[in-house]
Lab assay of single mutants.
Amino acid sequence: KKKREHFRQLLDETSAITLTSTWKEVKKIIKEDPRCIKFSSSDRKKQREFEEYIRD
């Protein structure tokens, strides 16, 4: 659960993310961040979390 919170925090702090951002764009920006790396090695899982984040 904590990894998820850190991942969401990373998304919060990434000012380039807007409601129209695509995962492909965002992934390029955040892929080097340790919170992104630690969250999951599964790209699909990160994408799902990102899409949920955008909906919230």
Rank of each mutant, 00 (worst) to 15 (best):
Val26Thr: 06
Thr22Gln: 10
Lys28Cys: 13
Lys3Cys: 02
Phe50Trp: 03
Val26Ser: 02
Cys36Thr: 04
Asp56Cys: 08
Ser21Gln: 03
Ser41Ala: 12
Glu52Trp: 12
Lys31Ala: 15
Glu13Asn: 03
Ser15Gly: 12
Lys27Ile: 04
Ser15Asp: 13
Arg35Ala: 01
Phe39Trp: 02
Lys2Leu: 08
Arg44Gly: 10
Asp43Glu: 11
Glu13Arg: 00
Arg44Ser: 14
Glu52Pro: 05
Tyr53Val: 06
Lys38Val: 10
Thr14Asn: 09
Arg4Tyr: 11
Glu13Asp: 06
Glu51Ile: 01
Lys31His: 13
Asp12Trp: 01
Thr20Val: 04
Lys27Leu: 08
Ala16Gly: 15
Ile29Arg: 10
Leu19Arg: 09
Lys38Phe: 10
Leu19Thr: 06
Gln47Leu: 05
Val26Cys: 06
Leu19Val: 13
Lys3Ser: 10
Leu19Cys: 12
Ile17Pro: 05
Asp33Val: 13
Phe50His: 06
Thr20Asp: 14
Arg35Asp: 05
Ile30Met: 01
Phe7Thr: 10
Ile37Ser: 08
Asp56Lys: 15
Ile37Phe: 02
Asp12Asn: 08
Gln9Leu: 00
Ile54Asp: 10
Ile37Cys: 06
Ile54Phe: 04
Asp33Ala: 13
Asp56Phe: 02
Glu49Cys: 10
Ser42Pro: 07
Ile30Glu: 09
Asp43Asn: 01
Glu51Pro: 03
Ile54Gln: 14
Gln47Pro: 07
Ile37Pro: 10
Leu10Ile: 01
Phe7Ala: 02
Glu49Thr: 02
Leu10Gly: 05
Glu52Val: 10
Glu51Tyr: 08
Thr18Ser: 13
Lys31Pro: 03
Ser40Tyr: 01
Arg35Tyr: 01
Ser15Met: 02
Phe39Cys: 05
Lys28Val: 08
Ser15Pro: 08
Lys46Val: 06
Lys31Gly: 15
Val26Gln: 04
Ser15Leu: 10
Lys24Val: 12
Lys38Gly: 13
Lys38Trp: 09
Arg8Gln: 01
Thr22Glu: 11
Ser15Cys: 11
Gln9Lys: 10
Trp23Cys: 03
Ile54Lys: 14
Glu52Ser: 14
Phe50Leu: 07
His6Glu: 15
Glu51Phe: 03
Asp33Tyr: 03
Lys38Thr: 11
Ala16Ile: 06
Ile30His: 04
Arg35Trp: 00
Lys27Gln: 05
Ile17His: 04
Cys36Met: 03
Pro34Ile: 12
Lys28Arg: 02
Leu11Arg: 00
Ile17Phe: 01
Phe7His: 01
Gln47Trp: 00
Asp12Arg: 07
Lys31Gln: 13
Lys2Asp: 15
Arg8Asn: 08
Lys31Glu: 15
Ile17Glu: 00
Glu52Asp: 15
Thr20Ala: 08
Pro34Met: 08
Lys28Pro: 14
Asp56Val: 03
His6Met: 15
Thr14Gln: 10
Arg4Lys: 12
Ser40Gln: 05
Glu49Asp: 03
Lys27Ala: 06
Glu49Tyr: 06
Phe7Val: 01
Gln9His: 05
Thr14Val: 12
Lys2Ala: 09
Phe39Asn: 06
Glu13Cys: 03
Glu52Thr: 12
Arg8Thr: 02
Phe50Met: 06
Lys46His: 08
Ile17Asn: 00
Val26Gly: 05
Val26Glu: 02
Glu51Lys: 04
Asp33Glu: 11
Arg48His: 14
Gln9Glu: 10
Asp33Pro: 01
Asp12Tyr: 02
Lys27Phe: 14
Cys36Phe: 15
Lys28Phe: 06
Ile54Leu: 13
Lys38Arg: 13
Glu25Leu: 00
Thr14Pro: 00
Ala16Tyr: 07
Tyr53Gln: 04
Ser41Cys: 09
His6Asn: 15
Ala16Glu: 13
Arg55Glu: 06
Arg4Ile: 02
Glu51Leu: 04
Asp43Val: 11
Lys24Asn: 13
Thr14Met: 09
Ile29Lys: 07
Arg55Lys: 07
Cys36Trp: 02
Phe7Ser: 05
Ile54Asn: 08
Phe7Ile: 06
Phe39Thr: 03
Glu52Cys: 14
Ser15His: 05
Lys1Val: 15
Glu13Ala: 07
Asp12Lys: 01
Thr22Ile: 00
Lys45Leu: 13
Gln47Asp: 11
Asp56Leu: 10
Gln47Gly: 06
Phe7Trp: 00
Arg35Glu: 07
Arg4Trp: 14
Ile37Tyr: 11
Arg48Ile: 10
Ser40Cys: 09
Asp43Met: 03
Cys36Asp: 08
Arg4Leu: 03
Phe50Lys: 03
Ile37Arg: 07
Arg4Ser: 10
Pro34Tyr: 04
Trp23Gln: 10
